[in-house]
């Protein structure tokens, strides 16, 4: 295993963290809530994709259908559950997402059981590269590519469409947006729906590397939270860079620093994140919040 391969593997896991972190950022930008259930929602989406695949649907079709379904369900969750807690006590909103996490986890175990399932990779096996340098798997490149597609698609949506403009207006100032006649409620639903869709993709990307299990996204969520906070919770670019940084550092430390090993490798990026946050509390790419008395 050479260094380049390790770095690319790190970038690949980082891309999965980034995809889920982008979902967290979407939710935070639209409703100001950090959704602890984001990972678990991605898990149930991935199970839906697995069920479709198991029934004979091609991989890409199954993943696509799961993403669309997640978009709808995510929007409904915002409308019928989260809406009641927006603007209230922040702890209540956080705990509601924790309740959602537990419920969805229970639902997944109930429907699909706790036996691990093998999830097919959306990318062909094998890879590119010469014999001496080792090979770089198509899965690794495909995961990084999928993240780039998501970033470009979201960028296009938010920067170049009227819908994206309206969404940004609502994120910046819901009250003024409502006065301008924007359908604030529906745009918040869109934020949660998009987040669930992006999360579903993250789940389908990570599932072939691990096995499909109800707890599959727990550690991914920890990294994604770290990436989102490190990126400033509002910046897509910052989030992606932070997630890549976390993925690469985790992979290199786990491989080359013998003291770290498999059990402590999750701690390395987190401790680095703590140090960075202490130096720059608003995150690397976040904006300083102006507080008034």
């Amino acid at each position: 295993m050479n260094l380049l391969q390790q770095v690319l593997d790190g970038l690949s896991s980082g891309s999965v963290y980034a995809t889920l972190a982008l979902a967290l950022v979407l939710v935070h930008r639209s409703t100001g809530i950090v959704n602890f259930a984001q990972g678990q929602m991605a898990v149930i989406s991935t199970y839906v994709a697995w069920t479709l695949y198991d029934a004979g649907v091609p991989v890409w079709g199954a993943i696509g259908a799961a993403i669309v379904l997640s978009l709808v369900v995510g929007a409904l969750v915002e409308r019928f559950l989260i809406r009641r807690f927006e603007g209230g006590e922040p702890l209540a909103a956080i705990v509601v997402t924790v309740g959602l996490l537990i419920s969805v986890n229970g639902l997944v175990s109930l429907i699909w059981g706790t036996v691990l399932k093998q999830f097919p990779s959306a990318f062909p096996s094998g890879g590119v590269g010469s014999g001496s340098g080792g090979t770089i798997g198509y899965g690794t490149l495909g995961t990084i590519g999928a993240l780039l597609v998501v970033v470009l698609a979201l960028n296009w949506l938010f920067r170049h469409t009227r819908l994206g403009l309206a969404f940004r207006a609502v994120a910046a100032n819901p009250e003024s947006s409502a006065l301008l006649g924007l359908p604030v409620g529906r745009l918040l639903m869109l934020g949660w729906g998009l987040a669930a869709a992006v999360g579903a993709l993250a789940g389908c990307l990570v599932a072939p590397k691990l096995y499909l299990a109800p707890e599959m996204m727990d550690s991914v969520l920890t990294y994604a939270l770290a990436a989102a906070v490190l990126g400033g919770l509002n910046s897509a670019l910052g989030t992606v860079l932070a997630a890549w940084f976390i993925g690469v550092v985790e992979n290199l430390a786990g491989t080359y620093v013998s003291f770290v090993g498999g059990d402590m490798k999750i701690a390395v990026p987190l401790v680095l994140m703590v140090l960075i946050l202490l130096l720059k509390p608003e995150g690397v790419f976040g904006h300083k919040e102006v507080r008034r008395v």
């Binding site: 009641r84 006590e89 209540a92 309740g99 537990i102 419920s103 986890n105 229970g106």
Partner: peptide, 21 residues
């Protein structure tokens, strides 16, 4: 036993919905 976790989560959500404070 099988639905314990699901029911626990639902209880949590119901209490928060009925008594947000």
């Amino acid at each position: 036993a099988g639905q314990s976790y699901l029911l626990y989560g639902v209880c949590l959500l119901v209490v928060m919905l009925l008594m947000p404070r």
